[in-house]
């Protein structure tokens, strides 16, 4: 067939073929541009992206109420709530009234008195670091309630360095960090449980630092035990906590 065609006709039929090839190349290139953007913005959810699928518009969904993740049963009540096991919630709470008419709770019968985590140098250091992230903004570097946010006009929190809070059990501080107190919001969404206890341990250290009287602080919670390890002799380290524990 082709042989019978005049030369000019063959030329004619070739040209559209070449044009087609070029057009196909350009189209492919155009598609490849499209591919790049599909890969760039893939149809999957990243953190904090919005979603049209869920009613609340959020891609990140909360687990249904009452869900317990594996290993998250939180059986240890003291660790996760700072409250004692089997204590009457309606136990009488002593309270007094200050000059301004505010009620001051003086006893905390439901709160645990011992740290549920072993008190180590690492725990205290972690506590100091976390304190400087979350607490220092209001409570100030040593807990006198003179943080930057207070200087900007936030109502001043009470100092850690009065008898009421020196004698308050550690569980009380944990409870306040978790659920808030007065004008302070709870920090449970910002600070994990272990870090909350680390902060509580550090607050005890701050209290001891501003009131260096071994009889007024709980024995195991003072930073003194750790400090003597470095400068004092080993014997005093071993005897001191026991002596303090006896005093308490």
């Amino acid at each position: 067939m082709l042989r019978n065609k005049p030369r000019a006709e063959v030329m004619k039929s070739r040209i559209p073929g070449r044009t087609l090839a070029v057009a196909a190349c350009i189209l492919t290139l155009l598609f490849s541009v499209g591919c790049r953007y599909d890969m760039q913005d893939q149809p999957r959810y990243k953190q904090y992206k919005s979603s049209e699928f869920f009613g609340d518009g959020k891609a990140m969904q909360d687990p249904p109420d009452g869900t317990v993740a594996r290993g998250q049963l939180q059986e240890n009540k003291a660790l996760y709530t700072g409250k004692k096991e089997g204590v009457d919630i309606n136990a009488p709470v002593e309270s007094t009234t200050d000059a301004k008419g505010n009620t001051i709770v003086a006893t905390f019968p439901n709160d645990v008195e011992e740290l549920p985590l072993p008190l180590t140098k690492e725990l205290l250091e972690r506590g100091e670091q976390r304190y400087r992230v979350f607490c220092i903004v209001c409570h100030g570097p040593v807990g006198k309630g003179d943080g930057m946010v207070v200087r900007r006009g936030y109502p001043q929190p009470t100092t850690y360095h009065d008898d009421r809070l020196r004698n308050a059990p550690v569980g009380h501080f944990f409870d306040v960090i978790t659920n808030g107190w007065g004008k302070m919001n709870g920090y449970s969404s910002q600070i994990p449980v272990a870090d909350r206890w680390a902060i509580v341990a550090y607050i005890r250290a701050l209290q001891a630092s501003q009131n260096p009287n071994p009889k007024s602080v709980t024995a195991g919670d003072t930073p003194g035990a750790n400090e003597t390890k470095t400068d004092g002799n080993q014997e005093s380290t071993n005897t001191e906590p026991a002596a303090n524990g006896g005093a308490k």
Binding site: Q47, Y48, R132, V133, F134, V137, V149, R152, G153, Y154, P155, K183, M184, N185, Y187, S189, Q190, I191
Partner: peptide, 30 residues
């Protein structure tokens, strides 16, 4: 501190965008 709001920067892929409650920690008063 950065971590006051971006709480998951040390533990997760995303640094974390604070929930509005974090703003309200101070701005319920200020």
């Amino acid at each position: 501190d950065c971590r006051y709001c971006h709480t998951s920067v040390e533990s997760g892929a995303s640094a974390g965008i604070p929930p509005t409650q974090t703003c309200m920690n101070c701005h319920n008063q200020l």
